[in-house]
């Protein structure tokens, strides 16, 4: 089965920490990515959410339906947020 091993869980956690620190830094330094900051931080959020559902919630080994439902949420919400951000002038 696709069980998350302790080593794998720790690797996922390291990724989550690194990604969080990156998006936090980007958010505080808008000058670095400029208008792309919002896109970048929401993309990172989607990646982090995906890591949580696949490895922490172990949906990687779940029936396709569950995985699709959660992956949809994880990608759709950040995408909607970015779309609405862009439609309001991207500020």
């Amino acid at each position: 089965m696709n069980h998350t091993s302790p080593a794998q869980a720790i690797r996922v956690w390291l990724f989550l920490v690194a990604a969080t620190l990156c998006s936090g830094w980007l958010g505080e330094h808008h000058g670095f990515a400029g208008r792309w900051t919002a896109v970048a931080v929401m993309f990172v959020a989607a990646l982090k959410g995906r890591a949580v559902i696949l490895y922490f919630m172990e949906l990687k080994g779940a029936p396709r339906g569950w995985r699709v439902a959660f992956e949809l949420w994880v990608w759709l919400l950040p995408a909607l947020i970015v779309a609405l951000w862009a439609m309001s002038g991207g500020a």
Partner: peptide, 12 residues
């Protein structure tokens, strides 16, 4: 994971 960037990080 979604609430944090949406509330804290979107605007400049």
């Amino acid at each position: 994971i979604v609430i944090f960037p949406m509330l804290y990080l979107l605007g400049s």
